[in-house]
Simulated scan of single mutants.
Amino acid sequence: MSRPRKAEDPIRWPVPCNRCGQHHQTVARWPDGGLCGYCYQQAKRTRGICACGHEGVLPGIIEEQPTCRRCSGVRLNVDCVGCGDEDELYSGGRCWTCVLGDVVDDLLTNQATGSMADDLIPLAAALKSMKRANSGLTWIQQKHVTAFLRNLAVAPHISHETFDELPASRTREYVRGLLTEHGVLPQRDELRMRYDSWAAEAIERVKDPQHLT
């Protein structure tokens, strides 16, 4: 999802963006003209097949159609040093997907043993294959998600009971669902389990013995 645009400022930026026509700061000058930051970001994320047959990032525009770097003459580094694919780069010359993969491996590896539990390998694969790697990285780097995955990495075994002992959260149920989907955990009636847990806690909250009968 692209970031919301701020109101344009014709006084501060009198020359409009060549693509959107709005008055924002020019951050790049390509063969088709100057681009504002919003159009620059969009160009780096535009993928498809160019008229020449090249498949990958299409940052240029010729006759209102997205084109590859070679056809458009756009100079832009989108070559990931990790996987070699064309993609928007995040850090160290690597794309979002490669960085996400490294973060996932680090969090799900037991630092004491230096290895990842076999039961967590399907989970790692699922997290690495998130449709939007940038959103996945943002999610996984939240402190509570990072802490949860690190705790899971050192769990002696992976079971529903293991998850039940961890603090209740949406993250716990999301990860449980992934492991269930990939056959690591057996299917179970989660609504029934939640009801039983709620019922037990409700009884504990009742202080008056007369209300327990």
Rank of each mutant, 00 (worst) to 15 (best):
E8S: 15
C17P: 05
C83S: 12
C80K: 07
A153P: 00
D118Y: 01
T138A: 09
R170W: 06
I49V: 10
C36S: 09
G56P: 08
R5P: 02
D102Y: 00
E161D: 13
C95F: 01
V15Y: 00
S135G: 09
K128Y: 04
K207D: 13
R12V: 00
D79T: 08
G60D: 04
E161V: 04
R69C: 09
R70C: 04
T97D: 07
V15H: 05
P209I: 06
C52D: 13
V99D: 03
D9A: 11
C71P: 12
D189W: 02
S159P: 09
H24V: 01
L137V: 03
A133S: 14
N151Y: 02
L123I: 03
K44N: 05
E86P: 09
G114K: 10
E161F: 02
L152I: 00
K44Q: 15
P16R: 13
C83Q: 11
E88N: 13
R192D: 12
L108A: 04
C17V: 01
A51S: 14
R188W: 00
M193L: 05
H54R: 15
L89K: 03
C68W: 01
G183Y: 07
R45N: 08
R29W: 01
V15C: 07
L152F: 00
N110Y: 00
A126D: 12
Q42Y: 02
L149W: 00
H160F: 06
R75H: 10
P59K: 11
A28D: 11
Q111M: 03
E55H: 07
V78N: 09
S72Q: 08
T109Q: 04
V104D: 02
I140M: 02
Q141D: 11
E161C: 02
V15G: 03
K128H: 05
A133V: 04
P10S: 14
L100R: 06
A202V: 09
D87T: 08
L178F: 03
A168P: 09
A125H: 05
G37L: 07
I158E: 06
